[in-house]
Amino acid sequence: MQEYNFAYLDEQTKRMIRRAILKGLAIPGYQVPFASREMPMPYGWGTGGVQVSAAVLTPDDTMKVIDQGADDTTNAVSIRKFFERTAGVATTTVTGEATVIQTRHRIPEEPLKEGQILVYQVPIPEPMRFLEPRETETRKMHALEEYGLMHVKLYEDISRHGHIATAYAYPVKVEGRYVMDPSPIPKFDNPKLEMAAIQLFGAGREQRIYALPPHTKAVSLDFEDHPFEASKADHPCGLCGAQDSYLDEVIVDDEGGRLFVCSDTDYCTHRQEAAR
């Protein structure tokens, strides 16, 4: 059998992606177009994230893949297997031990450190897509910093629900310049966007890469009289008792019984072990 090139993509492609990543890091929040490749998985499964991960991986890296915070769901398992096979890198489920973390829709609970890279899978990189469908127009709006439309979305939320009901993919303004879609992470995670690790965002179908360098300011948009609130379910975790982590609601029987558990499985497991 023919061997794969390290991390599946050929070197020229990785070079092209790295160039896009560097440009993204130089202009935080700006969506850099790149020539996204066909990957051996369907769009929507993280083709963008996988390409970014492939471009930043080195043989010495330790990789962790999470899907909605969990290490053991289909998406996470298949992508982890993919890199085990094509790159032969070490993998882990422990947040603190990983150097590259590819994530779908969550930021790990444990604060990330300098030297780590967090790679997001992004379905729709354009925060204004559903308000202004023309890409030519949204690009111009980004270029000229015309972001009034973003607040129209929040206005609509308040007028319909009485509060800002956008619970995920909550838009942030990066370093006072570009408005960015932080991928569909819950807004609970928004304050964590200002971190010590490098954050890279890859959208495969939409062919865009953007990035947040360490300690970049990312302010969630809001109104003076309806300030941003990082919300979560008002319960402790049913397994580890954590008060401060983002929770999934799990239906446990057909009589309305439900359980709230940490969506970050690694965090929850560690807390349970420590309690024992």
Binding site: E146, H151, F223
Partner: peptide, 9 residues
């Protein structure tokens, strides 16, 4: 909002 109004009320 395009000219900077940020107070919903």
């Amino acid at each position: 909002m395009a000219v900077g109004a940020r107070n919903y009320g």
